[in-house]
Design a protein around this nucleic acid. Structure first.
Lengths: 261, 261
DNA sequence: CCTTTGGTTTCACTATTTGAAACTTAGTCT
DNA sequence: AGACTAAGTTTCAAATAGTGAAACCAAAGG
């Protein structure tokens, strides 16, 4: 049930179709897409043809199924590399991972959802594509709430409108009001908690990464389990996490303004 | 400069602009793009506005610069995950990396260029985004030649037309004729060499990954240096590499056809 | 052999895109 | 200041590109 508001122009429709292809985990047949979309047959067909011709989706000639094209992987590499945050934050994440020994997440906001752009796993080595690029909910994750708390009013409104407020655990803040109160608490405190709100047993401490002008660029979190540590112990590391977030922000900004007086 | 043939429709133009934004390593200003593109001002402006609105590029309000949007990272995650090759090949790459102790590349063909979709580095741990998603030339790399050698005539022709034949090293096959002869040799031999054709001191042995119907799905290579080993020593591992390539092909196909008699 | 299902093409109708030119800002120079 | 210039944004009639009902084709199944 794609609750799409208003796809602007042909390009919007094409990208909408691209998302539809992406939303299935596997290659999809034309008729599957037709059933899902509310575009007429011919229109959908032409859009897919264009996308295929452009390398954004690939049509398997044997099975007649569409999958996302390799051109996207190339574009994403560029997107990641030129994002002001991820490539610059890399060494800082390494440092934080080593100091804490816990799982580290670096996230950005994408249409009201949390997009993980980098990660350090406590146990295994980095698994970028398999981990980064994933999305999660904003209202019930540490990084999500940390970013929401510092969004300007209109952006916050837009983001809130996209939250499902599904109650993942008994601790989930499952209403707009509860979330707004929490956001105020986060602003007062300077960092966000995840008190097993998304997954039972998983807690985290997250801080926003903000530009000098106060714009939210992303968020950084240290995640652990109730089996291994407590909120208080995590909180003791908050100043260090904040410090690293500030360093990342500074590095990102000086990269974005290489020319200086 | 951009020798674009014929961008079909508005969508093609929009994606063309997306590529332009991607091609710069850093955020670009409107006028930079205007200079590079041969679209009129108003058209380019509208295209960028649409792309921005769609989250494919982001406009930094402070600097007035455009960068690729986070939506791409999310799409690429899906692209990588649903590609028939990369996620499935993962354990096989691990195995090959361990057995050989050398650098492993997994590549696919993208518009006449080689796109690296996964990698195992001999020394460091995996660095996916920083490595995968990169593109390289086809005519002077092991994986490139391995794929070219088994392409159907029309696809080969299209790919050849996109090769620059720049002489990277004294060993580079810098002409269409030399390359065609080499491709025949590869078909006879069953695997491709890179005899320091792209970078001095770097050699590799590559094999294609082909479906049962013979379609080229990708290529797999083991890379080393002349300081550490020789072509002959690498060649001794060719049967094993071929075997793993066959296993990957089989796994990819059974994944693509989960329903069976 | 006839029917169904899934995919591709046609073509008159229309909505979207186009781009020269006019208009704003925001700097810079004298 | 006031007059220039560069960079970005908006307008609007003309033209192009997109639309989608319906016809068509091919392969699978009865």
């Amino acid at each position: 049930m794609g609750a799409e508001g208003h796809a602007d122009g042909t390009v919007g429709k094409a990208l909408d179709v691209l998302d539809m292809v992406a939303s299935h985990g596997r290659p999809v047949r034309f008729s599957d897409l037709l059933a899902q979309a509310d575009y007429p047959k011919a229109t959908l067909y032409r859009l897919l043809q264009t996308l295929t011709h452009q390398g954004m989706v690939s049509l398997d000639p044997d099975t007649g199924t569409y999958a996302l094209g390799v051109r996207l992987v190339r574009l994403a590499h560029a997107a990641w590399a030129q994002s002001s945050l991820a490539p610059i934050a890399r060494p800082y994440l390494d440092e934080l991972a080593e100091k804490t020994g816990e799982t580290i997440h670096l996230a950005q906001m994408d249409l009201g959802q949390v997009l993980y752009v980098d990660k350090r796993n406590a146990a295994r080595p980095v698994e970028m594509f398999a981990q980064a690029g994933k999305v999660g909910p904003a209202y019930c994750t540490g990084v999500g709430k940390a970013m929401l708390a510092y969004l300007p009013p209109d952006a916050l409104e837009a983001a809130l409108a996209r939250q499902s407020f599904y109650r993942h655990t008994p601790h989930t803040l499952a209403s707009r009001e509860a979330l707004l109160a929490e956001l105020q608490a986060i602003r007062d405190r300077g960092h966000a908690w995840d008190r097993e709100e998304h997954e039972a047993g998983i807690i985290c401490c997250a801080v926003p990464i903000r530009s000098r002008q106060g714009r939210v660029m992303g968020a950084l979190s240290v995640t652990s389990t109730t089996a291994r540590t407590t909120l208080d112990a995590l909180g003791a590391q908050a100043p260090m996490i904040k410090d690293i977030a500030a360093q990342i922000a500074a590095a990102a900004e000086s990269w974005r303004f290489p020319e200086q007086a």
